[in-house]
């Protein structure tokens, strides 16, 4: 399972980079091949405008990877910084930040992203912004909880007593200890961002045609479900495999960290 998942994720990266080689041919229209089914010449067939589906799938991979990387990197950086700072400072700073985190958690995440994407207008940058606005909270909560449990550790007390500056304590002495759980959170965040981007694009709020996203490919394809089901099946299978693979890797990571899970089963 683990190796297969790694292979799928690698294939996803390869597809995203392959999209650079495809270039304009993903948008080339061939009117003789409207809705053509897959065959030996074109593995995945053609879409409703006569564009090759394989090339569109690569472009979609690139979109999802780009959005997922953007969302995870920005959310993790912002969330972790806020969480560590809040946990380490304590006092009223911590109380205010905890309240803000509570409010964000009180919103259904997808709905907030839909609302933001709706008012900001469609586009890949706005999708990333909307998903970061929702996504940072998870990292902040985790980083705060971890910091609270670690800040009285002896090596941190020692660094304080030696007069090490606060940024150095946070960066050199605390951050390395909480990287592992944050990494697991980021792995699941990756899967969440891939699904959320596709979901927003499916609703017409994300990436707009002629740019390809697996979400808007499924959206366009549902209109031709009866005559050309491959338009929905192909991007959907790709999306599911990638999300499944990332989730398997995330589960593995979590099991490694969670000591309780390794107790022998009944």
């Amino acid at each position: 399972m683990k190796w297969l998942s790694l292979l799928i994720v690698l294939a996803w990266f390869a597809m995203a980079f392959g999209a650079f080689l495809v270039g304009e041919s993903a948008n080339l229209v061939d009117l003789n091949k409207l809705l053509a089914m897959p065959d030996w010449q074109s593995w995945l067939g053609y879409d409703e405008l006569g564009r090759p589906l394989f090339e569109r799938l690569l472009l979609g991979a690139q979109t999802s990877l780009f959005v997922a990387l953007g969302v995870v990197i920005f959310s993790a950086l912002i969330g972790t910084s806020i969480g560590i700072y809040s946990g380490f400072m304590g006092g009223w700073v911590d109380r205010v930040i905890t309240k803000v985190i509570d409010v964000f958690l009180a919103f259904p995440g997808l709905l907030l992203a839909i609302g933001l994407a709706a008012v900001l207008g469609p586009g890949i940058e706005n999708v990333i912004f909307a998903l970061v606005a929702v996504g940072w909270v998870g990292y902040a909560r985790l980083a705060r909880a971890q910091t609270l449990s670690l800040r009285h550790r002896e090596h941190i007390q020692a660094a304080r007593a030696l007069g090490v500056s606060q940024p150095v304590i946070l960066y050199r002495h605390l951050l390395p200890l909480i990287l592992a759980p944050l990494g697991v959170e980021a792995t699941f965040g990756f899967a969440g961002a891939v699904i959320a981007e596709a979901g927003l694009s499916f609703l017409g709020l994300g990436v707009q045609p002629p740019d390809a996203s697996w979400g808007n490919m499924i959206r366009e394809g549902t209109r031709y479900l009866l005559v050309a089901p491959h338009l929905v099946i192909v991007p959907g299978v790709a999306l599911m495999l990638v999300v499944l693979a990332i989730n398997v890797l995330g589960d593995r990571g979590r099991d490694r960290l969670d000591v309780k899970q390794s107790t022998p089963h009944v």
């Binding site: 979901g199 499916f202 499924i218 549902t222 929905v232 959907g236 999306l239 599911m240």
Partner: peptide, 11 residues
């Protein structure tokens, strides 16, 4: 957990 609902629905 991994199947997006906007794909499961059409399927």
């Amino acid at each position: 957990v991994s199947i997006p609902n906007f794909w499961l629905g059409p399927m």
